[in-house]
């Protein structure tokens, strides 16, 4: 009897203790372990970006944050880990749009999470999509390229990322907008299509501005068009697709996600921290060196974009397959 009471009492105490630890005011609590789940492999562009962000977040929040790489299946492993972690605000991670949306909307990926498994915290950067050719290519602008594609249907080879990724859908959108068909070549990394382009096996590649800038600077590549409504501050001399008559917009954005069910105050805490980071001189300097454009978006705006992205992609994914 006595034992039973003790057990009940102690489990009650334990339950209260654990529930108070979740609800405790004054997030973040002392001594809690904070982790940042990164879906990009160690040393890749995405990983370096998140490590820079984490370093600055540590400064702003005064907390230690541990980076954990869950590399694989196009950030799916990381998203899985975030979605199944405790929603207490101490675990957050990489949210790349629209990559993430495409994972849970693609039935073959068998994702065990959906859009409502996450709360988007804030957007940190956005790199507009771009189409590039070799510097010695006869295509000087988008019009040359489209004319060539019209003259040789299905003959122009274009690197279109991995299957069912943003780059793939960019190429599909271009085909539709310009009324052409091209030969889509799928690769398994960003470096691979660029290598094939330089080596002459491909005629063009669809990626993001940041993926090409280095090679544009070294005089090997030319960007035909930036998929944005305004020119990129990192390459102001390159015209947008809109300027060339194609209303095509795309890009890769990176931000933070936190598991659904996380208390509001935790989301607000990290959103404010990210905002401060994006305004700090050191972060700006680091991002400029990496060739990545900062684009901050707060929780509300980011959530709106998150929803819009899902609504926009859903019909494409279901018709594509």
């Amino acid at each position: 009897m006595k034992l039973k009471t003790t057990v009940i009492l102690s489990s009650l105490a334990l339950a209260m203790w654990s529930s108070t630890s979740v609800l405790a005011a004054g997030f973040p609590e002392e001594g809690k372990r904070i982790t940042m789940v990164v879906g990009s492999g160690v040393g890749t562009g995405g990983d370096i970006f998140y490590r820079l962000l984490t370093k600055e977040l540590e400064k702003v929040s005064g907390k230690n944050i541990e980076v954990i790489n869950k590399d694989g299946a196009g950030t799916q492993f990381a998203l899985q880990a975030i979605s199944t972690s405790k929603p207490d605000g101490y675990t957050m991670g990489q949210l790349a749009l629209p990559t993430a949306t495409m994972i849970w909307l693609d039935p073959t990926k068998q994702a065990q999470f959906k859009g409502d498994s996450f709360i988007p915290v804030s957007m940190v950067m956005s790199d507009p999509g771009a189409t590039a050719v070799r510097a010695d290519s006869p295509y000087k602008n988008m019009k040359d390229f489209i004319d060539a594609a019209k003259a040789n249907p299905g003959k122009i080879k274009i690197g279109a990322g991995a299957r069912n990724t943003r780059q793939h859908f960019d190429v599909l959108a271009l085909e539709k907008a310009a009324g052409v068909t091209v030969q889509k070549v799928h690769a398994d990394s960003t470096a691979q299509p660029v290598t094939l382009l330089i080596g002459g096996q491909l005629d063009a590649v669809a990626e993001s501005v940041g993926d090409f800038l280095n090679m544009v600077k070294s005089g090997q590549l030319r960007i035909l068009g930036v998929w944005d409504d305004k020119r990129s501050p990192l390459a102001p001399e390159i015209p947008t697709m809109e300027e060339q008559g194609y209303k095509l917009y795309s890009g890769a954005s990176r931000g933070l996600a936190i598991p659904a069910g996380t208390p509001k105050e935790a989301v607000e805490f990290w959103d404010n921290a990210v905002k401060k980071v994006t305004e700090s001189a050191e972060f700006k300097d680091g991002m400029a060196k990496l060739g990545l454009p900062i684009k901050y978006m707060n929780s509300q705006d980011y959530a709106k974009l998150y929803k819009e992205t899902e609504d926009r992609i859903k019909p494409i994914m279901s018709s594509g397959n």
Binding site: L14, W17, S18, G31, R33, V67, K86
Partner: peptide, 15 residues
């Protein structure tokens, strides 16, 4: 390098 950490409350609080 990241290594597994405990997810039991009191062990977690001990770090």
């Amino acid at each position: 390098t990241h290594l597994p950490l405990s997810n039991i409350g009191f062990l977690e609080n001990l770090g």
